[in-house]
């Protein structure tokens, strides 16, 4: 009995230490990316643009389609609830505030982790497995500067842009449901929205959120790939971990950021 308890405790302790260790390694990894980002600025910009095609442009379709549907559902649900209290006109406010404050940054980040994050992890993991990163190092080219940093900046730049597009398209989706379908006046839809959505408190904070999510999701995806055991199984596990860890990080950070933003 005692032996089993010690064993369990040791297991917990081992896992805990492992987690902390990985967190520390990830933090060092982040620091190395930042430091290596100054190596060859012109090359970095060129490569970042190149990577933004993979992280940004290729994520567009899923982001925009999801945004349209999320906006339309918000419009329908919001209208149904609000009209009971006789304030169906406020449906625009509801749609816009939910999107700009929460759903835009959060859902975009979750979709990004699934679409671009997994692709990054698998790519880096495979480059490691096939010794491409080692080969680069042997050619006196730093893989952090050449491979990791451009993907990092591409993710960090893409995320706020994607989130802004998500919110905008979502609002348009809400508009499509509310105005032509449910017959709410277009003027009051927009004007109520404008009086209630504050530029600094809502929009800027939303952008800040998506920026933070961009850093978190990209770092997690890159780190899991870079840290993956160089086997097929290792890479597939790393890809799963990217989705799980990114989602948890996004939701956790969202709570932290929201509580901070509300209290300030």
């Amino acid at each position: 009995m005692l032996k089993r308890t010690t064993e369990t405790l040791r297991g917990i302790g081992h896992r805990f230490i492992n987690r902390i260790w990985r967190l520390g390694t990830a933090a060092r990894f982040f620091w190395r990316i930042l430091r290596r980002s100054t190596d060859k600025p012109m090359r970095l910009i060129k490569l970042t643009v190149h990577e933004m095609y993979a992280t940004g442009v290729l994520s567009l379709v899923i982001i925009l389609v999801s945004a349209l549907f999320v906006g339309m559902v918000l419009g329908l649900q919001g209208y149904n609830t609000l009209q009971r209290y006789g304030s169906a006109d406020a449906v625009g406010v509801l749609v816009a505030l939910s999107l700009v404050r929460e759903l835009g940054p959060v859902v975009t980040a979750l979709l990004f982790a699934g679409r671009a994050g997994t692709a990054i992890t698998a790519e880096i993991g495979l480059m490691k497995t096939t010794e491409q990163l080692s080969a680069m190092e042997m050619m006196a080219v730093n893989p952090i500067a050449r491979v990791i940093a451009p993907r990092f900046w591409a993710g960090v730049i893409s995320m706020p842009l994607l989130a802004a597009m998500f919110s905008m398209v979502g609002v348009l989706g809400g508009y499509l449901v509310a105005v032509p379908l449910l017959g709410i006046d277009a003027g009051s839809f927009w004007s109520q929205m404008q009086t209630s959505v504050d530029f600094r408190v809502d929009i800027v904070n939303g952008v800040i959120k998506s920026f933070v999510f961009g850093v978190a999701c990209t770092i997690i995806a890159l780190f899991e790939g870079y840290d993956a055991p160089p086997t097929a199984e290792g890479v597939s596990r790393a890809t799963t971990r990217t989705v799980v860890n990114s989602s948890l990080a996004v939701l956790g950070l969202d709570f932290a950021l929201t509580s901070f933003m509300i209290s300030v």
């Binding site: 700009v100 730049i157 842009l161 597009m165 905008m168 609002v171 504050d198």
Partner: peptide, 17 residues
């Protein structure tokens, strides 16, 4: 992509906000 993102941001600021 970048242009569309910036347009969306401006749209949010002007039309929604």
């Amino acid at each position: 992509f970048v242009a569309a993102g910036i347009v969306a941001l401006i749209g949010l600021a002007m039309k929604v906000g």
